[in-house]
Design a protein around this nucleic acid. Structure first.
Lengths: 167, 167
DNA sequence: ACAAACTTTCAATAATTACTGAAAGTTTAA
DNA sequence: TTAAACTTTCAGTAATTATTGAAAGTTTGT
């Protein structure tokens, strides 16, 4: 496998994996491209490399910036904008975890809270609804807390703290 | 908010959340319906309650069974099949985590392994590709190990072991 | 103030993914 | 063995989501 093959394989795998961490294909591919690039890339270069349109590139770069994963960089003497991504995988993981918690988990917790606190009219089905949504609420909240604690650890929590705990 | 409202809200929220744990809307809704039901439900009842077609119900029930989340139950004196879901949230979380690891994370780890072991021809870009995919490989593998360790704990790992660690 | 260089927006379109419903298949009771 | 009761399959269609490309918008140098 030569460089080009390896690069393509990485970008396409990472792209199709997008769904796992909650973003779309183009977004994941742009991030992947930047992640293995040795220098900031312009919109032009990204479009050409991934064979996607200008509009698509622009919109997905914006989203990546919203997530805080990609930043604009100025390159001396160049007028156009260049982009780079966070290169540290741990920091990347932290950003993604935090964003997903905020965007997806938190709203669910809110609904589970609401649903599980309806008035208990004593019927079987109401009791079951309350019981089960409460259990789900508790689980979801615990996982969310866990994710955010992990994410707040600034050092390599993953290799240090966690692994040894489950030895 | 009365029972029906609460029920609908729960099912639709859980349904749209499907993407978070990697399954589609109908599948998540069926699971949600069974999760708060006080008794096993037939295909007929599921179709009616969720207003989805017979075919859709059948296919999604099969998928839920493939995941190991839903099981067929025989109801005495009834000819048709009835379905129930795992009612314990912790066991549910365990099943989902294990399945996602197997279906999604493991294959990615394999690709990252391949890509990160291409021959180092000494060029800048090859070195960067190797370095970055290696870092990603390590991270992904560690998370996968972590998930599987968590998942193997048969007791309420979540409240006990984990929370206190990140106090 | 102008225009070149560049970026963003968004309506139209394409690609993907989910859903339906009827036909084919299977199981069970008599 | 038959037929009623039930389940599965799958081609066609609908719904959703992603992408394009050209027009509108913005910025910068002169």
């Amino acid at each position: 496998m030569d460089y080009q093959e390896a690069k393509d394989k990485f970008i396409s795998t990472w792209g199709s994996l997008g769904s796992l961490w909650g973003i779309n294909k183009a977004m994941a591919q742009i991030q992947a491209l930047l992640f293995i690039s040795t220098k900031p890339l312009s919109m032009e270069e990204i479009m050409e490399d991934l064979k996607i349109s200008r509009g698509n590139t622009s919109m997905n770069l914006r989203q990546l910036m919203d997530w805080g994963i990609v930043t604009k960089t100025l390159v001396a003497g160049e007028r156009k904008e260049f982009f780079t991504t966070e290169k540290d995988v741990q920091e990347l993981a932290r950003i993604v975890a935090k964003e997903r918690s905020r965007r997806e988990i938190k709203p669910v917790i809110k609904v589970l809270e609401e649903v599980s606190s309806i008035e208990n009219d004593g019927t079987e089905k109401t009791k079951e609804l309350i019981k089960q949504t409460k259990a789900l609420h508790e689980l979801t909240e615990t996982m969310d807390v866990m994710i955010n604690k992990l994410v707040d650890q600034k050092q390599n929590w993953i290799t240090k703290s966690v692994l040894k705990l489950f030895k």
